[in-house]
Amino acid sequence: MSNSSPPVYRNSLAEHSNGRPLAKFASNAFAVACATCTIVCMATLVVLLWKIFQFGWGRVNLDFITSFPSSTAENAGIKSSLVGSLYLIGLTALFSVPLGVGTAIYLEEYCKPSRWRTFAQTNIANLAGVPSIVYGILGLGLFVRAMSLNRSLLAGALTLTLVILPIVILASQEALRAVPKTIRQASYALGATRWQTVWGQLLPASLPGILTGVILALSRALGEAAPLLAIGAATYTAFLPQDIVHDDFSVLPLQIYNWTDQPQEAFHQAAAAAIVVLLTVLICMNALAVFLRYRFSKRIQW
């Protein structure tokens, strides 16, 4: 990150159109078009959030968070699904981070360019685009049935790991690639082994990038409903999972999906309130990422 070039200098370059009015007009028009895109995105988001908050805010209270789901909308709460979501996201992080970062390190630092590497790389890129429901079906066959994990948190977390693994790998690779070649060369020149280079130089340097990727991927996992529905995650559970291999669990997106599908307006309000809670969890996760990113990037001194 270089912040040495003063913005004034850059601006004066852009203004320097040398009497080409058409070029200047095109430049300005493009700026307006980009600004419009930004405004459209922001406005849509703001309106959406505003409507959700307006509708659901009145329903968010301690009772809502500490009650189990119910067939009467007034008593319905998100205790089991909120706890389920938190467990699930924790387990998913536990599985996907070591696997994903490990794969990225292997592909970037150890694996020589070869057909095998190209093959692996292409497949990972393709897998990132596979609809998550497909992973749900795979999870049902592999984790729920073949490994007899039932409809448990472990099965759910492993399924979500499959969903986000390609994203974690690609983001980590990108972050590793962004570390200048000279750092590696300097490290080797000082006699460091490959392992010492990776652990002592590359990982700390790429950590902010990796973290961003991981948090984005986990945020996606937090909002997934389809693959969990496929493996048979519950919508109604009036208990908290006590262990991760036997107990059924529920998650917020499933609860929201269920409530929006009910005929009663009061359930729609509960859904909006659950969305508010889900968004809050997401914002907390992102805030944590920003904080960690800030802390780790401060340590990098080249």
């Binding site: 429901i133 073949a146 496929a230």
Partner: peptide, 26 residues
């Protein structure tokens, strides 16, 4: 999400019966 029906059981069955029966260890 009714779109899971039908081919869901087909694939799930295939995965569980042929490929991964060894993985039942856990």
């Amino acid at each position: 999400m009714h779109f899971i029906r039908g081919w869901e059981s087909h694939f799930a069955g295939w995965f569980s019966s042929r490929l991964f029966s060894l993985l039942a260890l856990p």
